[in-house]
């Protein structure tokens, strides 16, 4: 009998148990994970199991679709430069946020029928997706051809892009990347806010401003969601501070705050809000967006 084997065996067993308990078998191929060099953090899986409350944030496509209904004009050069993609292949944090930013740019172009730009942003999303280990969502090598084939039919094109979005959601779930998915949604939300702010600054369309305010309301849920994953990435605290700042600026808009105190379902169309009231929150959005894309 070799008694020295016993502690070693126990140690092995404990390691096996702890690995198994933290990470379920992921269906992503090891090739995908290796090529992407993505750290599928255990802390994400643990947080997921312990949450009594979870948060379902709106997609970039939905935000862009509702934004378009406000009569928002299309602005050139407001979206992030597609050639920046390689710049973001650094931390999981940067990759995820900018995947979301490009998905919002794609949705903005698509909802404005800018199909060539949409195709290029879809390519940017695909490239960012490969950095995140969700290659399978974009694995159809005929994406450019399928995009071109549907280009004359807006509904088919939106259906096609929606299908890819669904695939990415499934991949994030299967890869145990819930906090990465959350970061991507926060990136998309920030980009959508930034675009709305820029469009409003140019057109002074009240419906655009009201849509911007509706988007700002999502910050409450976003903060709660981010706080649930605050230890997953080193940059999380800084992001939470920036979103808190945006929320605080929104809460301090006197006309909006007074109306919301009376009725939380206030129709923003009924409010007369001076532009000076909106300025601090627009500046905070711009600062966060600049930090994300640089």
């Amino acid at each position: 009998m070799n008694l020295r084997i016993l502690p070693a065996a126990f140690l092995t067993a404990i390691v096996l148990v702890s690995c198994n308990s933290k990470e379920e078998p992921a269906s992503v191929s090891s090739e995908d994970a290796d090529s992407a060099n993505v750290a599928m953090t255990d802390s994400s899986a643990i947080a997921e199991e312990n949450h009594a409350v979870s948060y379902n944030l709106p997609s970039a496509l939905q935000i862009a679709s509702v934004f378009k209904k406000s009569g928002a004009a299309y602005l050139l050069n407001v979206t992030n430069d597609k050639s920046n993609v390689s710049k973001y292949n650094t931390s999981n944090y940067k990759k995820a946020l900018n995947f979301g930013i490009y998905s919002a740019d794609l949705a903005y172009c698509l909802s404005n029928k800018k199909y060539q730009e949409s195709k290029e942003y879809l390519k940017a999303c695909k490239d960012m997706g490969s950095f995140l280990g969700i290659n399978k969502a974009f694995e159809d090598n005929r994406i450019p051809e399928r995009f071109d084939k549907n280009i004359s039919n807006e509904d088919s094109l939106i259906k096609f892009v929606t299908h890819i979005q669904r695939q990415t959601d499934v991949m994030f779930e299967e890869n145990k990347q819930k906090h990465i998915k959350l970061l991507a949604l926060v990136g998309a939300w920030t980009e959508s806010l930034y675009i709305a702010g820029e469009v409003y600054a140019k057109d002074k369309n009240k419906k655009v401003r009201n849509n911007l305010l509706e988007q700002l309301l999502f910050s409450g849920t976003i903060l709660k969601a981010l706080n649930g994953y605050k230890d997953t990435e080193p940059e999380m605290q800084s992001l939470i501070s920036s979103v808190s700042r945006i929320r605080s600026d929104f809460d301090q808009m006197p006309v909006v705050a007074a109306a919301m105190a009376k009725d939380e379902n206030t129709d923003f169309n009924s409010l007369d809000i001076p532009d000076t009231e909106l300025l601090p929150v627009l500046q905070s959005i711009k600062a966060l967006r600049t930090d994300m894309v640089n």
């Binding site: 009998m1 070799n2 008694l3 084997i5 016993l6 070693a8 065996a9 126990f10 092995t12 067993a13 404990i14 096996l16 148990v17 198994n20 308990s21």
Partner: peptide, 18 residues
Amino acid sequence: MKKIALSVAVLLGLSSFQ
């Protein structure tokens, strides 16, 4: 003893899977 240790390891592994 080796067998016991191995059994414990396997059992622990299995229980975590279930």
